[in-house]
Amino acid sequence: TLFEALYDYEARTEDDLSFHKGEKFQILNSSEGDWWEARSLTTGETGYIPSIYLAPV
């Protein structure tokens, strides 16, 4: 399942991933609670993103 960003997000740590509204992600690991490891389909970068900023596509 792909997810789309509902809002912009600016990374706060080196493990976080910055993204823009409308960016799409492949989720790599969603077992860490509210922060999911994801790969951006726009940039190819991976990192942790807040799941509350996402909606399934």
Rank of each mutant, 00 (worst) to 15 (best):
T1F: 12
T1A: 13
L2D: 04
F3H: 05
F3R: 03
F3P: 00
F3V: 06
E4F: 13
E4R: 06
E4M: 12
A5V: 01
L6V: 08
L6D: 01
L6I: 10
Y7S: 10
Y7T: 09
Y7A: 12
Y7M: 11
D8R: 04
Y9N: 02
Y9K: 04
Y9A: 02
Y9M: 04
Y9R: 06
E10N: 11
E10G: 06
A11R: 08
R12K: 14
R12F: 09
T13W: 13
T13Y: 15
E14K: 13
E14P: 13
E14H: 13
E14I: 12
D15H: 15
D15K: 15
D15F: 15
D15L: 14
D16M: 14
L17H: 03
L17N: 01
S18N: 06
F19S: 02
H20A: 11
K21L: 05
K21E: 05
K21M: 08
G22A: 03
G22I: 00
G22N: 05
G22P: 00
E23P: 00
E23V: 02
K24Q: 14
K24E: 05
K24L: 15
K24S: 05
F25D: 00
F25R: 00
F25M: 04
Q26T: 10
Q26H: 11
Q26F: 14
Q26K: 09
I27R: 04
I27V: 10
I27E: 01
L28T: 07
L28P: 02
N29F: 07
N29K: 08
N29H: 08
N29W: 07
S31M: 13
S31T: 12
S31R: 10
E32N: 15
E32H: 13
E32M: 14
D34V: 09
D34N: 09
W36Y: 06
W36H: 02
W36S: 01
E37K: 11
E37L: 15
E37Q: 13
E37I: 15
E37G: 04
A38D: 00
A38P: 00
A38L: 02
A38W: 01
A38M: 07
R39E: 05
S40T: 02
S40W: 01
S40Y: 02
S40K: 12
S40V: 04
S40C: 07
L41I: 09
L41Q: 07
L41G: 02
T42Q: 09
T42A: 11
T43V: 01
G44D: 06
G44E: 04
E45S: 10
E45T: 08
E45N: 12
T46P: 01
G47V: 05
Y48W: 15
Y48T: 07
Y48F: 13
I49T: 02
P50K: 14
P50R: 12
P50L: 14
S51D: 03
I52A: 15
I52E: 14
Y53N: 06
Y53Q: 05
Y53D: 04
Y53A: 15
Y53G: 08
L54R: 00
L54T: 03
P56A: 09
V57I: 12
V57Y: 07
